[in-house]
Design a protein around this nucleic acid. Structure first.
Length: 182
DNA sequence: CACAAGATTCCG
DNA sequence: GGAATCTTGTGC
């Protein structure tokens, strides 16, 4: 079974988010360097979720969230940090999975990509990756990680939001040293 | 056009 | 605990 066929991303964010744990996010930077990390922490943002950017309807910023699942949604937060999301669900549903932390294959204890802003800085993801289909041709894609299979997953409330705090929509790999926070 | 808020991070 | 820093959405 190929986990990465088109329908894989058509699941709801709440279903997709835990399934992304243990997969490798890869990016080839503009100067041709391959950067990659294993996803160890994610959060789901759903259409009727008060914490979700798309909940208030389409705006210029959130347009990618209303595309079909499988494209990227990148936005700038606090004027300083980019956050990378994988859009999920059917077209026009308005949902996505925020990638919150990566474990570096060669430095499993590093905190260099432990946090949504930090992983974008590490992978060199910015607005130019916004709204693109995740694929090797677009130099931004997912692979199954050979290092992690069937990770033990912890489910908690999300971080940094003011509404929708009650939903248990944050997922991370138990005992990972590279998550953003306990 | 002005203004407040924000899915963060780092320092004190 | 608080600042940095600036885009975006909203309201006048």
């Amino acid at each position: 079974m190929n986990l990465l066929d088109k329908d894989f991303f058509k699941q709801n964010a709440t279903e997709l988010a835990p399934k992304l744990l243990g997969m490798t996010l890869c990016h080839i930077t503009p100067i041709g360097t391959l950067k990659k990390g294993i996803i160890v922490e994610t959060e789901a943002y759903m259409p009727d979720d008060p914490a979700c950017h798309a909940a208030k309807g389409k705006t210029k910023r959130t347009l990618p969230m209303f595309e079909e699942g499988g494209i990227s949604y990148v936005y700038l937060i606090y004027g300083m940090y980019y956050c990378f999301n994988i859009v999920s669900g059917e077209k026009n549903s308005g949902q996505a999975v925020l990638i919150r932390a990566l474990q570096l294959p060669e430095h499993p204890h590093s905190k260099e990509a432990a946090g949504p802003g930090k992983l974008c800085r590490y992978l060199e993801i910015n607005k130019s990756q916004n709204g693109i289909q995740l694929s090797k041709e677009n130099k931004l894609w997912l692979e199954k990680s050979p290092l992690i299979s069937n990770p033990e997953i912890v489910t908690t409330t999300r971080i940094g939001i003011s509404a929708g705090k009650e939903n248990l929509w944050r997922f991370y790999i138990k005992n990972s040293n590279s998550i953003s926070k306990k």
